[in-house]
């Protein structure tokens, strides 16, 4: 950085000083962001290689399967004898093809979904799609999200709502919903048979807190400091990208809030989010 303290005039007026400080802060923030993106890009290249690898390969296989199937439909078109049709059907191993086609497509879709998730996460990291902060009702956000993840939750967890009186807070609700979703899905994954997820909301002075507590398997103390790192995951490949929490962390930070985790292995995990009701620097226009 060009501005080192040594060439900083000592008798700057306070205004000038604070402007410079702000500038330095912005630069710091930017370089942190760049470092995060760099780290992300290296990880992303590897994460994307696998799904792209098998989807690409499957497409080549699909080409062969289709040309086999076309042999059959062409024969139908030519009105070949039933005998001939059976012969072709046998030679292309139709039964196998049918079954494997379904698997091939399902696996390929899964691969593309993974790439999509990673790209979406990248976008959120780089904040290319800037949305506006607006007043929103967090309880509504929670309910919407519960609907979305209902499938993941319903067989495993009973959801207990311990809601306080919350004022609307200034936020980007779509992003907070993402955070809520990540926490709920993680909680559901942590529950091995069946268990409980408690969602607690409170209003305290100029901020609100949200808690997500589960009775799942908990987090190893050695892992606790790493769960917010990009690509940190204990889930098998293909199941978790390890981006959920790092993304959530970024979103909460962007909202000038904090997210923390406490866990007792074998008993459960508690994620706590603290969010200010107002955003610093936001003009009150509502």
């Amino acid at each position: 950085m060009a501005d080192t303290p040594s060439n900083m005039p000592e008798d700057l007026p306070p205004q000038e000083l604070s402007a410079r400080l702000q500038q330095a802060n912005r630069q710091l923030h930017q370089s942190e962001k760049m470092a995060a993106i760099g780290q992300l890009a290296a990880g992303v290249a590897h994460e994307i290689n696998n799904p792209v690898g098998y989807v690409y390969s499957n497409l080549q296989t699909l080409e062969h399967y289709l040309s086999d199937l076309f042999r059959l439909t062409d024969a139908v078109e030519r009105a070949d004898s039933l005998e001939d049709l059976h012969q072709i059907r046998k030679s292309i191993d139709y039964e196998f093809l049918r079954g494997d086609l379904e698997d091939l497509l399902a696996e390929s879709r899964e691969g593309i979904e993974r790439v999509k998730t990673i790209i979406a996460a990248m976008k959120d990291f780089t904040h290319t799609e800037e949305e506006e902060f607006r007043y929103a009702d967090l309880h509504r956000g929670i309910e919407t999200t519960l609907n979305v993840v209902n499938n993941e939750l319903k067989y495993r967890a009973q959801v207990v709502r311990d809601f306080g009186d919350l004022p609307e807070i200034r936020c980007i609700i779509s992003q907070l919903n993402q955070v809520i979703m990540n926490l709920l899905v993680n909680a559901a994954h942590a529950i091995e048979n069946t268990g409980t997820i408690t969602i607690r909301t409170r209003h305290e002075g100029d901020h609100v807190t949200l808690e997500f507590e589960d009775t799942g398997k908990g987090i190893d103390p050695a892992d606790l400091s790493r769960i917010f790192d990009p690509f940190f995951t204990t889930k098998p490949v293909g199941k978790g990208t390890g981006l959920g929490l790092s993304l959530s962390f970024n979103i909460i930070e962007k909202h000038h809030g904090q997210i923390t985790a406490a866990s007792t292995p074998g008993q459960g995990t508690l994620f706590r989010i603290r969010l200010p009701i107002e955003q610093p620097g936001a003009v009150s226009d509502e």
């Binding site: 690898g53 098998y54 390969s57 499957n58 080549q60 296989t61 091939l104 696996e107 899964e110 098998p236």
Partner: peptide, 14 residues
């Protein structure tokens, strides 16, 4: 390979 989908894709080619 630790990823099952890679294995099935390769198996198809062979």
């Amino acid at each position: 390979d630790d990823e099952a989908n890679i294995l099935t894709a390769l198996r198809r080619l062979l």
